[in-house]
Computed example of a mutant assay.
Amino acid sequence: MSHTVRDKAKLLARVRRMKGQMEAVERSLEAEAACGDVLQLLASIRGALAGLTGEVIEGHLHEHVVHAEGDAEREKAAAELADVLRTYIR
């Protein structure tokens, strides 16, 4: 069973919290809130996304790289991670 399936409830809870944070940004913009308040909300979302991303990356490393069933699977998982990190750090 994949780590994202095994940790599904925890990961979805984090996504739902971020969804609530995005809705808070929308409400703030609709209410013409101060830009400092909107920026604070956006910073919180960015931190939450970084935390979620880190958790999924860590699970990927442990399950698909460290505990891979063979070298081919390990190389494939490492290449997938490298591709994602390339996109993530742009």
Rank of each mutant, 00 (worst) to 15 (best):
D83C: 09
D37Q: 10
G54D: 10
V38F: 02
D37N: 09
I57W: 01
E32M: 07
E63W: 05
S44T: 06
S44D: 05
V38L: 07
A48V: 06
V25C: 05
A78D: 12
V84R: 06
D71M: 15
S28H: 04
E55W: 05
A31T: 12
R46F: 02
K76S: 12
V66T: 13
E75C: 04
H64Y: 09
H60I: 00
D7E: 11
E73Q: 11
R46H: 07
M22P: 04
G20R: 01
K19H: 11
A79D: 15
I89F: 08
K8M: 13
S28F: 02
R46Y: 03
I57V: 15
M18R: 03
Q21E: 13
R74P: 01
G51V: 03
A72C: 11
G47F: 00
G59V: 01
E26G: 04
L85T: 09
T87W: 08
V15F: 05
E23T: 12
E55V: 05
A79N: 13
E80V: 11
R17S: 09
E80R: 04
R74H: 06
H3K: 05
A79I: 09
E55I: 07
S44K: 00
L85H: 03
A33L: 08
R90F: 06
E80F: 00
G47I: 04
V66L: 06
T4W: 02
A13S: 12
H62Q: 15
